[in-house]
């Protein structure tokens, strides 16, 4: 059984039909990258998966549980599917470690000492062992995003959703974040990544979805889609992204 299943999902914002029938699935341990032009519905579909957005019709299931943002079961989904945002969204009034242990302590009710030990380990793993006590405003964008990844990992999730995790970063800070994400992929974490980093998608993704106009215009193994796309829209998009001038 696939971990995440989407079946003919539709979503409109008023008259704007953002998602027009998306059907796909993500298996355990799979890394799926979603690429596509802006406004194609990439972020929206990602946000539907953990119920940050509702959807109008179709179905989304996580390990068989229907994702319904108004149902009690959404908490169970969210504690198992973490999310990393483009703008980090760290809690500014808490230190790096406090950000990381917030969910384990207050949502999963782990003993504080255990959560702290695990949190320190995770911050060390993303290369921020020396920033445990720093507040977000004292950290660079790349460091903040790595704290956000540690915060997502602290929930011991089965899958992590990444919403353009490097788009708000200065170019020289992108590498550190991608390196952490690559190591997660290597360890078998299930990941769905909305990204403009074609190089990352080519190297790390098992599968790539190309979204255009709210539908999956093309999908397949990363190497195939990114080096030899069939769909003229994918070809055009990749040409623009890879050779902007």
């Amino acid at each position: 059984m696939p971990m995440i299943e989407l079946d003919n999902v539709h979503k409109s914002f008023g008259a704007n039909r953002v998602i027009r029938g998306i059907t796909t699935h993500v298996s355990k341990g799979e890394v799926v990258c979603i690429i596509g032009p802006s406004g194609s519905g990439k972020s929206t579909i990602l946000r539907c998966i953990n119920g940050l957005e509702g959807y109008d019709s179709g179905s989304i299931r996580f390990e068989g549980i229907p994702v319904n943002r108004t149902a009690k079961s959404i908490t169970a989904v969210r504690t198992q599917v973490s999310m990393v945002f483009q703008r980090f969204n760290l809690f500014p009034h808490r230190t790096a470690l406090e950000n990381v242990i917030e969910g384990p302590i207050f949502v999963k009710r782990e003993p504080r000492a255990d959560a702290q030990a695990h949190g320190r380990l995770l911050l060390e793993r993303v290369g921020l062992a020396d920033k445990v006590g720093a507040h977000p405003h004292e950290l660079s964008g790349g460091q903040q995003q790595r704290v956000a990844i540690a915060r997502a990992l602290a929930m011991r999730p089965k899958a992590i959703l990444f919403d353009e995790p490097t788009s708000a970063l200065d170019p020289e800070l992108v590498g550190d974040v991608l390196a952490v994400m690559r190591s997660l992929a290597d360890e078998g974490m299930t990941m769905v990544v909305v990204t403009h980093e074609i190089g990352f998608a080519r190297e790390v993704a098992d599968r790539v979805l190309f979204l255009d106009g709210g539908v999956i215009a093309e999908e397949g193994p990363a190497a195939e889609i990114l080096t030899d796309p069939r769909n003229p829209r994918t070809q055009d998009f990749l040409r623009r992204v890879l050779k902007p001038l």
Binding site: L52, R78, F85, N89, F91, G103, V107, K108, M155
Partner: peptide
């Protein structure tokens, strides 16, 4: 308070009350 704060709280499984108490009101 930035909408992203609520979303970050939601994605770690916080309900409305916990989000208010731990994330929104302190800020």
């Amino acid at each position: 308070i930035d909408r992203g704060q609520v979303e970050a709280a939601q994605t770690i499984g916080m309900g409305w009350g916990l989000t208010m108490r731990r994330v929104i009101l302190p800020q």
